[in-house]
Simulated assay, not measured.
Amino acid sequence: MAPTLLAGTDTPGRRARCPDMTNGASGRLTDRACVITGAASGIGRATAERFLREGARVVAADLDGERLGRLFAGRDGVVTVVGDVAREDDARRMVAAAVESYGRIDVLVANAGVIPLLDVVEATADDWDRVMAVDGRGMFLTCKYAIEAMAGQEGGGAIVCTSSISGMAGQARQAVYGPAKFVASGLTKHLAVEWAARGIRVNAVAPGTIETERVAAARVEPGGPEYLDEVARAHPMARFGTPEEVAAAILFLASDEASFVTGAILPVDGGYLAQ
């Protein structure tokens, strides 16, 4: 298998029904200005789609400009920004796009990340630097500029970071990715305490293995089905999650329904962390 995994769904040979999370909307984010990083695929894409159905005005940001264009070009209520969250000017532009287009930023979903599967012997210093740049520095920068803008506007705002089960518990072959997600979990808690009095809520989701394009590809790679089957067995619900299921949790944390919730890290993991 290639050394990067972006997450999973039903395990090979053990299909389990996932709820339909694609229908229904209640306007929970009507006219809210929302920035979503990593919006061209996986959880970020599902979150952008869900937010649009809930009435949000979205800035969809990603490094993959071609895919962003295919997904969102010409759609009402969407501005796209191509950039790298690890670059300070790009992170600043993503937040500025919301302020310039919509007059404010109400929600940041700090989701962009890369997920290599490496043990500490296999991993190189370059692997460490690459993951920490995107998953660590990138999350710090997007949160920094979002909070700077939210602190200067009426009503504060909400930030939802994408952490992981690997950011709350140890896992094999996560010597690079896991520590980066511990950064996400720690940053969430510290920023929540630091900015609560200014009306800025900061929470995180901690997904288990989630069905993304990468997992779909792994199913046809040598050793992929066997590996995914082993990972699925580690989830008590005996299946992987879907991006839409994570997006539903992100929506809750971003909405007024979570108005007294800050500093929380919400597992969306089929019971993985309950063991």
Results as ranks from 00 to 15, higher is better:
residue 10 D to M: 08
residue 11 T to F: 14
residue 14 R to N: 15
residue 23 N to I: 15
residue 32 R to N: 02
residue 34 C to H: 09
residue 35 V to L: 13
residue 36 I to L: 09
residue 37 T to A: 03
residue 38 G to R: 01
residue 40 A to Q: 03
residue 42 G to M: 13
residue 52 L to M: 09
residue 56 A to I: 06
residue 60 A to P: 07
residue 61 A to Q: 05
residue 62 D to M: 06
residue 63 L to E: 03
residue 64 D to G: 04
residue 66 E to A: 13
residue 71 L to V: 06
residue 81 V to F: 07
residue 81 V to I: 11
residue 85 V to A: 04
residue 88 E to W: 05
residue 90 D to F: 05
residue 96 A to V: 04
residue 97 A to T: 10
residue 101 S to K: 12
residue 107 V to Q: 01
residue 108 L to S: 01
residue 111 N to Y: 11
residue 123 A to W: 06
residue 130 R to H: 12
residue 137 R to W: 07
residue 138 G to F: 02
residue 151 A to H: 13
residue 159 I to P: 00
residue 164 S to A: 11
residue 175 A to H: 03
residue 179 P to I: 08
residue 180 A to I: 08
residue 182 F to T: 11
residue 190 H to P: 02
residue 199 G to K: 00
residue 199 G to R: 00
residue 213 E to I: 09
residue 218 A to C: 10
residue 220 V to P: 11
residue 222 P to T: 07
residue 222 P to A: 13
residue 228 L to R: 11
residue 228 L to T: 11
residue 229 D to Q: 12
residue 234 A to S: 10
residue 239 R to W: 06
residue 244 E to Q: 13
residue 249 A to F: 12
residue 259 S to V: 00
residue 259 S to Q: 02
residue 263 G to K: 01
residue 263 G to R: 00
residue 268 V to A: 07
residue 272 Y to V: 12
residue 274 A to K: 07
